[in-house]
């Protein structure tokens, strides 16, 4: 509670010094090249303030935290913390709880546009392995988001990738190995070519 009282004071000081430095609205150039104005509002974020929110993981592995976990450990965590919604085999419970695991041979040609009943899973659709880590860290388990440790996250990511036949069940994942994982269908994702005009795309 004490900390909570101290923090705002620290922030006020930071905000004041920023105001003084910018001495009111001053003209500078924007990255767009246009002249711009500074209002001296807000305060410079401290490293701790950035760290507290900066949890994203990029497809290049940037932002992956320390820690590690095995697919076998992940299987146990999955049964305890995920299976009640996603099913014991990760098969999902439609329509609310999505399937996470499954490689229906009918879907293997990435033929989802022809049949919407084909089930998309991490193995047959997701283009980047880092997304599994990033999303589970943000959002799962749905009733307790933010409750998993980094080791648990690596273990669950390893289990979800292994049970989708992307990596062997014996894999241990950490920051270095997760960013190396190539998803089977990454090459199928293309940039948007719609531009309006006469063509329907």
């Amino acid at each position: 509670m004490r900390g909570a009282l101290i923090v705002p004071l620290v922030l006020v000081v930071a905000a004041c010094s920023r105001d003084a430095a910018s001495s009111g609205a001053s003209a500078r150039a924007s990255a767009t090249g246009e002249p711009t104005r500074h209002y001296g509002l807000g305060h410079a974020a401290s490293a701790a303030e950035v760290a507290a929110r900066d949890i994203d993981v990029g497809p290049d592995g940037e932002g992956l935290p320390p820690g590690s976990g095995t697919a076998q450990q992940g299987a146990i965590i999955f049964q305890a913390k995920c299976s009640m919604c996603h099913g014991p085999k990760g098969q999902g419970m439609p329509p609310v709880f999505p399937a996470l695991i499954g490689r229906d041979p009918k879907a293997e040609g990435f033929s989802f546009a022809k049949d919407w009943k084909l089930v998309k899973t991490i193995g047959n659709y997701w283009p980047h392995a880092t997304t599994v880590f990033d999303y589970v860290r943000r959002a799962m388990p749905q009733v307790l988001p933010g409750s998993l440790t980094n080791d648990e996250l690596y273990a669950l990511t390893a289990y979800l990738l292994a049970s989708n036949q992307v990596i062997p069940m014996t894999t241990t994942l950490d920051a270095a190995s997760l960013k190396q994982v190539k998803m089977p269908y990454v090459d199928r994702f293309v940039v948007d070519n719609r531009r309006g005009g006469k063509d329907v795309k």
């Binding site: 994203d56 497809p59 990435f110 546009a113 998309k120 997701w126 199928r188 994702f189 948007d192």
Partner: peptide, 30 residues
């Protein structure tokens, strides 16, 4: 570079009949 979050990979991508999926398809057509 983009972050490839779940909402721009697993969801909000558009599978097409040629076996690809359109990504970052931001504009809403008329």
């Amino acid at each position: 570079r983009p972050w490839m979050t779940r909402w721009e990979t697993s969801k909000y991508t558009d599978p097409l009949p040629d076996g690809t999926a359109r990504q970052f398809s931001f504009d809403m057509d008329a």
